[in-house]
């Protein structure tokens, strides 16, 4: 091997070594933080659920069928009051927005006649446009409205789409609509 070849091999070797060490450090950080992240998500979910239905005493998770890994996914929550009566149903639903997945939280009363509220757990929408689905102004439109009115005003409902963010607005409405239908079917 010539001298310059040898040098190239040494340089590549050093780069590989440093990269491997960097990967090791990142792996060691990932393990504890990913566990903490899951706890954070659960805490955030709890806060959102009790924000949607402040009078509910407890949210009982309703689980789906076991998947391949033997885990059960939580489909929705039954909100119960002090004496154990079902007040309504709260849920999270994932829906594709204009930029990425939006995770919407919603609540519906026990007779499936009124939507109680909407909140956004996470989204990747454009700041200033689609990201306004997280604002009070937009979310208050979903507070205590009849399920029949749950549609954009252009489709005969009572929800005014955000200016310049019709796709994000429609995604939120569709997420709620789909999930409420699913729960109604499951509870029937």
């Amino acid at each position: 091997m010539t001298d310059s070849n040898k040098q190239t091999v040494v340089v590549i070797g050093k780069l590989v070594l440093i990269s491997a060490f960097a990967a090791l450090l990142l792996g060691l950080t990932y393990i504890p933080t990913s566990a903490q992240l899951e706890e954070n998500i659960i805490a955030a979910q709890k806060e959102i659920l009790s924000g949607l239905m402040p009078n509910a005493q407890n949210f009982e998770p309703v689980e789906g069928a076991e998947n391949a890994e033997g885990e059960r996914e939580i489909l929705y929550y039954r909100a119960v009051d002090d004496s154990g009566n079902i007040m309504g149903y709260a849920f999270f639903q994932e829906q594709r927005g204009s930029q990425g997945q939006i995770i919407v939280a919603g609540a519906v009363d026990s007779s499936f006649s009124n939507v109680l509220g909407m909140d956004v757990l996470s989204h990747e929408e454009t700041p200033g446009l689609g990201a306004r689905i997280t604002t009070q102004e937009f979310q208050s439109q979903f507070r205590d409205i009849p399920v029949s009115q749950l549609a954009l005003s252009s489709s005969g409902g009572s929800i005014d789409a955000l200016t310049g963010a019709t796709i994000s607005s429609r995604a939120v409405v569709n997420a709620l609509d789909t999930k409420i239908g699913e729960i109604e079917e499951a509870e029937a």
């Binding site: 960097a22 450090l25 990142l26 950080t29 990932y30 504890p32 933080t33 990913s34 903490q36 992240l37 954070n40």
Partner: peptide
Amino acid sequence: ATFVSIVDMLMEAY
């Protein structure tokens, strides 16, 4: 970048 990623993960979690 390695240390930035570590800060990023720690801050997001804690």
